[in-house]
Amino acid sequence: MDGEELTAQETALYDRQIRVWGADAQRRLSKSHILVSGLSGISVEFCKNIVLAGVGSLTLMDDRPVTDDVLQANFLFPPLESEYVGRSLGELCCESLKDFNPMVCVSVVKGDVAQFDGEFFDKFDAVVVSGCSFNTKKAVNEKCRKQSKRIAFFAVECRDSCGEIFVDLQNHSYMQKNSNVAAECLLSYPSLEEAIMIPWKGLPRRVTKLYFAMRVIEKFELLKERNPGEISMFDLPDVLKLSKELCEAQSLSESHISVALLERLLAAGRRECPPVCAVLGGFLGQEVIKALSGKGDPLKNFFYFDTADGKGVIEDISN
């Protein structure tokens, strides 16, 4: 594609992965631009993976000051040092990530992702958001969808021992890798809003309970105007009440929402479990690579991992 060869330096550095996805995919990756908003444990893992993979550029957005809290699952720089004063998490992560692969351009944009207009997103091929409100995720997703070029959208959240990835590739065509025949396939994705508006009653019977529990917590955080993870066991009564109301409104048996699971999610608060971040950041990396390279079967459209049962499950929540 585009006839541009990889340099000898790229071929040497990326040798092992070119053997996995091919030189074409590597060339596409090296021309791709990615935005990551919210540097949670998962997104930091993701950033590492995608910088190593050799994308064209990575833009970070996270104005938070560096605190112990934001560093719990972050391996990009040393714990609190005086020189961090006045510098944002995004800036510090950027410095460290540049080091991982000199061939990738890593930069920082200040601001709140919710405040940027559609044109801003036009610069990117994939946008990953984490740690922001549901409304922000939805708004960014819509802005990506309104651009003339396809911008892949991903939202991720880790709640201690479990986590969720949402994928919207809009209309995605790719080469299916099954058997010996390479077949061109087309997938249509719903937006985040469309996906979660799908009546629970209409979902396949064996959808993971995490899907429902995550929606209850998400709704709770939305109603209380809190960011993801700003919850605790004190919220249990309210959350149970909300859960009951949602089940009634959706005519879904309450048995689909495990109280124990809700308790786990509430107790988790903002805590992120590093191995879970590694697992989800790994899958997110793979999915973004598939979306950018057009190679490999992408997942549609939710992915769950829970250490309680050890399963990593794809759920297709679409019409």
Partner: peptide, 28 residues
Amino acid sequence: LFEAKGIAGNIVHAVATTNAIIAGLIVI
């Protein structure tokens, strides 16, 4: 040459993401 080198050198396909996932599972 790229392919021949892989065969002759027993070079194994490797990506960061799978290693990260597997390492997470080892810790669990």
